[in-house]
Write a protein that binds this DNA or RNA. Structure first.
Length: 103
DNA sequence: GCCGTGACTTTCA
DNA sequence: GTGAAAGCCACGG
């Protein structure tokens, strides 16, 4: 599956600076794929560990982590965000001051 | 080739 | 601020 989208999405996610986060919709839009936020999630889901993509810096538009609280991925993402200075309170990420958008 | 599903978004109550 | 419903698109069965 070629999916030229995949490389575009990965490039966009990889461009997120450390300590900043973005949403699936923004990633899709910046990658030139509006209305395809779900595809971003799908790509990240099928993402191998070797890709070295900061997928933990991508959250949903509500500022929440798109995983169940009991999920392992949820904890990994939360820890990674807190490791970069992001604050997670009540399943919500304080990204309003740290949201990233490519110019 | 139809159908259900998903790491989503936006709008409305 | 919270929750439900409709909309969107690609993938696998």
């Amino acid at each position: 599956m070629n999916t030229q989208y995949r490389q575009q999405i990965l490039s966009t996610v990889a461009a997120i600076p450390r300590g900043f986060v973005s949403s699936y919709g923004d990633i899709a839009r910046l990658a030139g794929l509006p209305n395809q936020a779900r595809l971003v999630g799908y790509v990240l889901k099928t993402l191998p560990e070797e890709s070295r993509i900061p997928w933990h810096r991508v959250i949903n538009a509500q500022g929440k982590i798109s995983f169940p609280c009991d999920s392992l991925s949820y904890h990994r993402q939360r820890l990674a965000l807190e490791e970069e200075g992001l604050i997670v309170k009540n399943n919500k990420v304080q990204w309003l001051k740290k949201r990233w958008a490519a110019q």
